[in-house]
């Protein structure tokens, strides 16, 4: 993938797509092969360096959003920043405004609808101006209208920051939103490299 590319990987459930994203994010260590992000090889990188790289260069969006329930919307976004380039309150507020949650800054996740929670997750993923955003079934819990809106918003946010976007999904509508599609079945022959 080149900087700013947007790719969707489609494949069957349980076929290892999440594991693949975890490997790219450095959450899991690969046994062999090569994973490069911005020219840096992740495979031989120590855990702490992978953690640092994940904090500063990767945004991660989960199917179940994974917001921290004890933290408000704003705090969830700030938390994402705190492990990366540091807390930037103005940017966190701006991102939440862009995703339409300027009136929900101090709401807790349980006080939000599913669609709103997803938008907080988008803002958090973009908080550190990552080079790459990984989205694991980002619309899995959304209704069709919210799904389309979420994908469009995600693409807009990535465009604004020049971030690459790698989405895994088995949702046909999501796939239709991307010009670049990769079939999971062919992926074991692909070497992903972000320049």
């Amino acid at each position: 993938m080149e900087r700013g590319d947007k790719v969707v990987i489609h494949g069957e459930s349980g076929s290892g797509k999440t594991t693949f994203l975890h490997l790219i994010a450095g959450i899991l260590s690969a046994d062999s092969g090569s994973i490069k992000l911005g020219g840096k090889e992740l495979l031989n990188m120590p855990q702490s360096a992978r953690d640092r790289l994940r904090a500063t260069s990767i945004g991660y969006i989960f199917q179940t959003f994974n917001l921290l329930q004890g933290f408000t919307c704003l705090e969830n976004v700030l938390l994402g920043m705190s492990f990366g380039h540091g807390i930037d309150d103005a940017r966190a507020r701006q991102l939440l405004t862009v995703v339409g949650l300027e009136n929900r800054l101090n709401h807790y996740p349980r006080q939000l609808s599913v669609g709103q929670q997803q938008r907080v997750a988008l803002a958090r993923a973009l908080a550190n101006r990552p080079k790459l955003v990984l989205a694991d079934e980002p619309t899995g819990n959304l209704d069709p209208a919210n799904s389309r809106a979420a994908i469009e918003l995600l693409q807009e946010l990535c465009d604004a920051d020049g971030a690459g976007l790698l989405v895994v999904s088995h949702d046909m509508k999501v796939m239709d939103s991307f010009s670049s599609k990769v079939s999971w079945a062919k992926l074991n022959r692909v070497t992903g490299e972000m320049k």
């Binding site: 994010a25 702490s48 953690d51 994940r54 994974n66 921290l68 938390l79 994402g80 492990f83």
Partner: peptide, 16 residues
């Protein structure tokens, strides 16, 4: 466990 995993996924180090 999940909360810890989320923090780690956000880049929190084990030491943190």
């Amino acid at each position: 466990r999940r909360e810890i995993a989320i923090l780690r996924s956000l880049g929190a180090r084990r030491g943190t």
